[in-house]
Amino acid sequence: MTVDADWTIVVPVKQVPDADDVTIDPETGTLNRSDAPAVLNAPDYNAVEAALSLRERAGGEVVAVTMGPPFARAVLETAVALGADDAVLLTDRAFGGSDTWPTSLALARAADELDADVVVCGEESTDSSTGQVPPGIAAHNGWAQLTYAEELEPRPDDDELVAVRDVEGGHERVAAETPVVVAFEYGENEPRAAGLHRKIYAETEFEPEEWSAEDLGISEQVGLVNSPTKVGGMDTADPVEREQAVVDDVDALSDRITEVTADD
């Protein structure tokens, strides 16, 4: 045990294709993710902001981590530009095809390796949007979890983090022991803009550390073969046919509505 009141705050960030630019290959049914510019998952801006704000109140450092191909380092640069102190890229062919089970294992091992007190994730990704990675990280490490968190109150002296959580139709305040994994709710804080100096540093000087599956001791537990779920097929959702008629005045609209609601 180190006598250290400062927190190590780990922020897992995901690189996702820019939502508007994903196309599907009609022949193979696979996604052409390569056409789409890759960006930082929008909810992860809220996670980074929540982590920076925790650092300001509790002291310590913020380390961004991503698991992905080598070019995923771009989202680490974004996180560093926003204010993260350091970053680690988990990259290895062995990770390819991982579902949420091995993805959360890799992130859990990295968080453990970094001696994390708090892990702050985004609510969910904008591409596969399972929201399963944060509770998965907590489960792999046997740590507490605070999902759908809207506010965080650090209590480093008590080794506790208090969160206001969104529960269906209401809220709860929960105190969790550290280490703890948070999933911060999308849109619940105002992410700061990257400072110019920080941005230049991130783009020109900064180099993330790189860890492989072997470094984490999990080569045999990751990748497609070790993923319980398999994507069996992908197709474009049948677009819903809509009239798309623009009416000029309220009378016409009111007539349409009367027709529709009189139908049954």
């Binding site: 998965g136 759908y148 529960v167």
Partner: peptide, 19 residues
């Protein structure tokens, strides 16, 4: 729900389940 997803993500890991 928020509770259901909190629960499901937690339990799938030790159960070695696909979720």
């Amino acid at each position: 729900t928020t509770t259901g997803r909190d629960f499901a993500g937690r339990v799938a890991v030790p159960a070695d389940a696909g979720l």
